[in-house]
Simulated assay, not measured.
Amino acid sequence: MAQTVVITGASAGIGRATARLYGGRRADVVLVARGRAGLDAAAKEIESLGGRALVHEADVADPDQVEAAAAAAEEHFGPVDVWINCAFSSVFAPFEEISPEEYRRATEVTYLGFVNGTRSALKRMLPRDRGTIVQVGSALGERSVPLQSVYCGAKHAINGFTSSLRTELLHRGSGVHVTVAQMPAVNTPQFSWVTSRLSRHPQPVPPIYQPEVAARGVVHAADHPRRKQYYIGATTVATIWANRFFPALLDRYLARTGYDSQQTDQRPPTGDSNLFEPVDAATGTDHGAHGIFDDASHGSSLEAVLARHPAAVASAVASAVGVGVAATARAALSRRGR
């Protein structure tokens, strides 16, 4: 029986790439976003891969619109099995250059959008005692960087909210699962349509991964939701652990390098931003899953592969430890025999 999957932010980027993967599984995919051109293009991709698609325009900052999307999903395809929260918006600028209206809007989409999606999903999943919610997080939800205070704040909030919810589900012995897929820098269109007050074009901090790498991590997290979170990309792991052990040193390093590393040598974008309106509203242009950094992006991640095969990793680590112990023992015996 086909899975029913709801994906917010499905018109572009990670959400779009994830939708394609589920299309290849012949799933029933409900595509939720504001941009109609991207949604329609995503639906065609899913159907060409053998899945079924339902397009639903909605602003995730509005809980009533999210609830309407959830109701449409179940009316059209039946009970929702997986709900993936992926929609976001942001502003690249020093904090003092972001207006209260911009800060509120970005927070309502990027944080409260996840809260609204989770609420509508739980409303349906809890009575059935089954279902999975995946929050598409970020390494920046653990380690903040300059020029992205609103995005980092929202991603931190998602982690806190999800951890609290997880304990509540455990308390009631629920069969509903929630997990977080923490992302590295990803080549999505957001860097060309984000609201920016930088002097140069925004970019993800290298190394950059393609959206398909992120999407494989999201789908794996949905298939195996018992883990609290998944780290996609070696840089995500490195960033999180560095922040735990050397936070003050990382502060100074980012203060020195974080401005230049998030900007290219190109001029800033001249098109419309997607903060208050979808960028395809006027032009009807589909922006796809990829951004403009294809030439600098990786199509695979060793760490993500290892995360999907923990048994093999454990076996390899055990073997390596065994070899190391044996070598150490032989060396000790050799020294004693002299």
Rank of each mutant, 00 (worst) to 15 (best):
L169F: 11
G131P: 00
R197T: 06
I158D: 03
M125I: 02
Q135L: 11
V150G: 02
L147T: 09
M183Y: 15
V134W: 00
R166G: 08
S144G: 14
G131Q: 00
V150S: 08
S120R: 01
R197N: 14
V109K: 05
T132H: 12
F114G: 07
F161E: 08
T167I: 08
P189Q: 03
L147H: 03
D129M: 11
P146N: 13
R130Y: 12
N116P: 04
G160E: 09
V178N: 07
G141I: 02
T179D: 10
R143M: 07
R172K: 15
E108M: 12
N187A: 01
Y103H: 05
Q135V: 08
R200L: 08
L122P: 13
T118Q: 02
Y111G: 04
V178K: 08
A157I: 11
T132R: 13
A157R: 06
A157P: 06
T118E: 00
F114A: 10
E142G: 01
I158N: 09
Y151C: 14
T162G: 07
T132E: 08
V186C: 07
P189D: 04
A106K: 00
V178C: 12
L170R: 14
N116F: 06
S199F: 03
M183R: 13
V109T: 08
T118M: 06
L112E: 08
I158E: 06
R105V: 15
T107F: 15
V178S: 14
I133R: 01
L165N: 07
A157E: 02
G175S: 14
Q182M: 09
L140R: 14
R105D: 01
G141N: 09
V186S: 01
P146R: 06
P184L: 09
G173A: 12
H177R: 13
M183W: 13
G160P: 10
L140E: 06
R200Y: 10
S144F: 06
K155E: 02
N116R: 00
E142F: 07
T110A: 04
A181H: 10
V145S: 10
E168F: 03
V178D: 11
T110W: 01
M183T: 15
Q135H: 15
M125Q: 09
A154R: 04
M125L: 01
T110C: 01
H156Q: 09
R128S: 05
R143P: 05
P189T: 00
F191K: 01
P146L: 03
L112T: 09
G175W: 15
P184C: 04
V109W: 04
Q190S: 12
G113K: 04
T107M: 09
M183Q: 15
V109L: 08
